[in-house]
Design a protein around this nucleic acid. Structure first.
Lengths: 342, 342
DNA sequence: CTGTTAGCGCATTCAG
DNA sequence: CTGAATGCGCTAACAG
């Protein structure tokens, strides 16, 4: 491995001069030396040793991306195209900013923070954090943190942080309202698990708001908490077809994944969609396109989410700005074929 | 950040003793000191600084996972659940071995190798490498490398490497043979792009072998190279429905993703599947389950792939073994509802 | 069993 | 504009 010292020897200057050339401090190096050093760096394929950087606390250039496993099951994380997409786009953005991405999955805040200090990580992106975990993260580290899709209670936190989310409430509202406009009155809400928080909670609130405005009363049994184990979920859905599914003309799902999964089970059990039941998803990912009927859903721009996340994180890292940043991106109602008027 | 030196001060021993405790060299530390140091480490939440490790060439504990973009388009990488799954499982295995995962996408071998030397990466996992890239990787670095699904030409390489793949030839053969057993004679082969290599080439060869054994002649026009741009691909498929799709009773696809995508387009254009056309996929991932009819496909154990990859990589890193390791995992024909006898 | 020392590569400070 | 010296944290070699 070629080092600054060796380059200095080759060219016949001091390591400092080489360092100055690397960092483009042209005002500190003569034009002649600058060129000579540049050439040597190129010819010898110089790559800086990150160990030296970390040790000298000159910045590790690592962004840690942490997948918080706590709520969703492993099965869903690995099956959900959203995670796939966002990780792909985050990597792209991190790389384009000259940083490196360390990917880590963990259910524990302290484990994640150990990672951070071991590597002197410059910034964290945290996916799938619950509000209480988010608070711990913010309190326990000085490093810039960007959450994606986490609802942090601003009042509880007096430090800076970034959150890039979605207008989930609006999404839940819009899609429900669309069903209402189509004449639906009996609309159920289906989510991952029984205890909603964060994103799903907001979508649920939006759903309820739409019902309220339309003078439709919500009953607790209109909420369907689905198991994330495939087998249990499918058994439950089949049972629903046999019992009280007929009480509903529309179902709002918190994700395309769940919607498509359920739609297939319903269809397998003789329910005609959308004729007998309208279904809506959320995400507008590949699932809502690769099923029939295609899903009416709420679209989000995943690439934009990744782009903004890294943009604000970089701003924070470079101390160009601070303060709380909480951006909720717009959603878009994508009307396809899984919904019809009643 | 707490360091070994500080722990040493706190306990009143030398840094070496602390280091020996950390590395569990019990024979070099008195039981009494061992306990005292252990306690201090715990209480102060000691985390080793990786910069020190890298700089001292004591092992960075980083595994670099490189996604080679060259062949498949970005769109497909991010849409294909296989990448999602394998990355998730690789991360899990890497973490369980006490290592860290650095994720990097790149089309260039030299860029990837720069990453390797900058971080003193201990081992590489390379996804989606073409055979010629694989050779470059192997020749240009001394670090242990594990490829996933790459067909390296053994004769050209005199260094060690690991490849964990699939019996792709067998998969292509089995699925085609199954169609033949169902009475199909006119069977097309559909792949990503016109120039096949690696995995798809093997699957194609298996398909042709099955035809040959059944005395079915293969013509060049039985091969369908699909565009990875969605729009172009769909236009092409729609056109196929109007023209010569009727010449075929079965189509073998190189992936579930392509198969489901095409199946939807065919169905949208009035083709009844499987009645009028049998379709097969490859991968047995979520797509083959979340479509109707469910796809007959070739199953692979993605988790096992990740597990073996890291197992052999670790073995190589710890110098416990060497030599070329080329393991092709078994495939399994998964018969579902997209195929019927003619 | 314990402690001292050296060196890994970088960027910065300070002296020229 | 240039260079010498320094310290970051860890581990291994070596001396006691």
């Amino acid at each position: 491995m070629i080092t600054i010292k060796k380059i200095a020897e080759i060219v016949g200057v001091s390591p400092t001069t080489v360092s100055n050339v690397i960092h483009e401090r042209k005002n500190k190096v003569s034009a002649e030396n600058y060129e000579k050093v540049k050439k040597a760096l190129r010819e010898n394929n110089y790559v800086s040793n990150m160990g030296g950087r970390i040790l000298g606390r000159h910045g590790s250039k690592i962004i840690g991306v942490i997948l918080n496993y706590s709520r969703r099951s492993e099965i869903n994380i690995i099956s959900d195209p959203f995670f796939n997409q966002i990780i792909g786009y985050l990597e792209e953005q991190i790389r384009m900013n000259g940083y490196f991405m360390m990917l880590y999955t963990s259910g524990s805040v302290s484990e994640s923070l150990k990672l951070t200090s071991a590597w002197d990580i410059e910034g964290l992106v945290i996916l799938g954090a619950l509000p209480e975990d988010a608070e711990k993260f913010i309190q326990q580290t000085q490093k810039p943190i960007a959450f994606i899709d986490t609802y942090v209670d601003e009042k509880k936190i007096n430090k800076d942080y970034i959150n890039i989310g979605l207008k989930d409430f609006e999404g839940g509202y819009d899609v429900t309202n669309y069903l209402i406009e189509l004449g639906h009155q009996k609309i159920g809400f289906c989510a991952d698990g029984n205890h909603l928080s964060g994103v799903d909670e907001q979508r649920f609130a939006g759903y309820k708001q739409a019902l309220t405005e339309a003078n439709i009363k919500f009953h607790n049994h209109d909420f369907f908490g689905l198991d994330y184990h495939v087998k249990q979920r499918h058994d439950y859905l089949v049972n629903l077809v046999r019992t009280r599914l007929k009480d509903y003309s529309g179902l709002v799902f918190t994700s395309d994944y769940l919607a498509v999964d359920a739609m297939n089970i319903f269809q397998d059990n003789g329910i005609r969609i959308p004729e007998e039941l309208s279904i809506t998803g959320f995400d507008h990912n590949i699932f809502s396109e690769q099923c029939r009927p295609k899903l009416t859903t709420i679209g989000q721009d995943v690439r934009q989410k990744a782009k903004l996340t890294i943009k604000y994180l970089m701003r924070e890292i470079h101390q160009k700005a601070s303060g709380k940043t909480n951006i909720l991106l717009d959603v878009e109602l994508v009307i396809q074929n899984s919904t019809v008027p009643v």
